[in-house]
């Protein structure tokens, strides 16, 4: 009995792995191996073109102690967290509007929201530079309307510009998951809560918000994790005050010829991001139960 039972499970395993092994091995070779390699490299030293493979923690010590790296880490986290907060905060009412107030037009609204994001990310971020610049669209528009007498300079080349561009650039990644979680809420629950005496505001905080929490948490992670490592946005609209860790990784890797330090910076940011994400998920664990 036991043997034959194992046999049928075994065939499922064989059939499954026969298909999955190809993409899995591909990911092992192109993701796991490079990450491991980067991890190893972060403990080595590079002197121009020669690589010293003796184990050292110097790169990590440098990453942790040098003020410039600490500044870049904290700035990247702050920018990313702020952008995540604003993106989610703006996306929630939008998703709520589509899910609860659009009736038949849901698909149309979702379509309308995604269209602007069919422009490449690179060009969209560049357009923010065009909008916010000294001779840019916004300044020229305001001058034309005679609302200002000379162009304002505080718009571009700072951390705020990066936050603004990111809040714009990642909007659909917040709207869609939140929308999906709102859609999943059984509408009869709302009727039940109303029937049991909830006001619309009670209903929002006692039913809608907790039940859509998985979508909100998902959206926050989907935006936070990649934006910490964003390269394009700070490079285009950040100026020197808005540069982030990814820009430094790139500099260390190419111009400064210090790949081990770049690797250590990459690994450090990966670890910091993972740590914050895990804490964030644990903190919200009670909302992630399956309903």
């Amino acid at each position: 009995m036991g043997g034959t039972l194992n046999f049928s499970i075994k065939t499922e395993t064989i059939k499954g792995w026969r298909l999955l092994s190809v993409p899995f091995i591909f990911s092992l070779l192109l993701l796991a191996a490079p990450l491991t390699m980067m991890f190893l490299l972060s403990f080595w030293t590079q002197d121009y073109l020669t690589l010293d493979k003796t184990f050292t923690l110097n790169n990590y010590i440098e990453a942790a102690t040098q003020p410039v790296y600490r500044l870049l880490f904290t700035r990247s986290l702050l920018i990313s967290l702020t952008a995540t907060f604003f993106t989610v905060a703006l996306a929630f009412p939008m998703a709520y509007f589509i899910s609860f107030h659009c009736g038949e037009r849901k698909a149309l609204w979702l379509f309308l929201i995604t269209i602007p994001f069919w422009t490449s990310y690179l060009i969209r971020m560049f357009l923010w530079k065009v909008i916010l610049g000294y001779n840019g669209v916004l300044n020229s528009f305001l001058l034309w309307l005679e609302m200002i007498t000379e162009p304002v300079t505080f718009l571009l080349y700072n951390a705020n510009a990066v936050v603004l561009a990111l809040t714009h650039g990642w909007a659909p990644f917040a709207i869609l998951p939140i929308f999906v979680s709102l859609e999943k809420i059984d509408r009869s629950l709302l009727e039940a809560s109303k029937d049991l005496g909830d006001s619309p505001i009670d209903q929002f905080f006692r039913i809608i918000l907790p039940l859509s929490a998985p979508g909100v948490i998902g959206a926050a992670l989907i935006i936070f994790i990649p934006t910490v490592g964003d390269y394009i946005t700070p490079k285009l609209v950040g100026g020197t005050d808005g540069l982030m860790i990814a820009n430094m990784i790139q500099v260390q890797f190419s111009k400064a010829n210090n790949a081990p330090l770049a690797a250590a910076l990459s690994m450090s940011s990966l670890m910091i991001v993972s740590f914050i994400s895990i804490v964030f998920v644990l903190f919200n664990k009670k909302y992630l139960r399956r309903y």
Binding site: L31, P226, G229, L270
Partner: peptide
């Protein structure tokens, strides 16, 4: 694991591939 590149910062994917 296969889905990870969806969320990993692209710069880390790019740099690590370049290193290899």
């Amino acid at each position: 694991f296969i889905l990870a590149p969806l969320i990993l910062p692209e710069i880390i994917v790019g740099v690590s591939l370049l290193i290899v």
